[in-house]
């Protein structure tokens, strides 16, 4: 069927059309290059409603010109490649920026966590496997405005249109923020580099982001103070420790720690 004869709805039931089996089952169906399939498997999760028609139109051209997948500068292909890249990036950011809160007892035999995450594309489903492989010994849920994923006793399932819940406070977050504040080097302030990798749209669901404005504001003064401080004289114990090492030529027992 020619691309211009098809109207694509907004219904998000992707996947089947480009499944290897689905394609090869069509009588007289053309063979589809593997590279197209793997690209399509990402592009279908893009939020752009034109994704299916773009994929199909390109597939149609591919039929006549199998070499087209190798033409990295074909405008339609490079547009699809860009969509693929957007989806990959969104998946990567989800793996990075989901923040779980503990919702069960820390002493329970199987611990239990939940998160709220707002992906740019339809990223929850293709990325759930990553979390299942990583956090197999605990229960976890990632809620999002569209599809949410629930992992319980080793089984993954998806639910839709979950209302936004308030997750309970988690004491672990304070330690994480402490870490975030102290691993930062104020003498190397580079806000732009931070934001290009961690865009602001993610901040509202990341506990450490609340600390960022203060860290930025105080950085120049902290760096200036470090540079301006006079060298202090070493603590008394330093000379003793160094003298002992010099005598022994090897690190000695320092006494009780």
């Amino acid at each position: 069927m020619a691309p211009e004869d098809i109207r694509w709805g907004h219904e998000d039931e992707p996947g089947d059309l480009f499944d290897q089996s689905a394609v090869s089952e069509q009588p007289g169906g053309a063979t589809v290059p593997r590279s197209f399939l793997s690209m399509a498997q990402s592009v279908v999760w893009h939020s752009d409603p034109s994704r299916f028609s773009r994929l199909y139109a390109f597939l149609w051209r591919l039929n006549d010109k199998p070499g087209l997948m190798a033409d990295c500068a074909d405008p339609a292909l490079s547009r699809l490649r860009l969509m693929e890249k957007n989806v990959h990036r969104c998946q990567h950011k989800m793996k990075a920026f989901v923040r779980f809160r503990e919702v069960g007892s820390p002493d329970a035999p199987r611990r239990s966590f939940a998160a709220w995450f707002e992906p740019t594309h339809h990223t929850i489903e293709p990325t759930a496997g990553f979390f299942a492989r990583r956090f197999a010994d605990m229960d976890w849920r990632i809620y999002s405005p569209g599809v949410s994923v629930i992992f319980e006793s080793g089984k993954t399932r998806f639910i839709e249109d979950q209302p936004r819940l308030d997750l309970p406070e988690d004491a672990g977050e304070a330690l994480w923020i402490t870490y975030f504040q102290n691993i930062f080097n104020p003498a190397r302030l580079n806000v732009q580099a931070m934001q290009s990798e961690m865009p602001k749209k993610y901040w509202k669901n990341m506990p450490e982001a609340a600390a960022i404005p203060d860290l930025i504001a105080s950085a120049p003064e902290r760096a200036r103070q470090m540079a301006a401080a006079e060298p202090t004289s070493p603590p008394l114990r330093a000379e003793k420790i160094l003298a002992r090492q010099r005598r022994q030529g090897r690190a000695p027992v320092l006494g009780e720690q």
Partner: peptide
């Protein structure tokens, strides 16, 4: 990975930066 449910954690080749400090690192 931890499939099987007896362990915790995975690594799948590429690293992941879970946050960026205001020094861009």
């Amino acid at each position: 990975d931890s499939r099987g449910g007896k362990s915790l954690g995975s690594s799948e080749g590429s690293g992941i930066c879970h946050a960026y400090a205001p020094d861009g690192r």
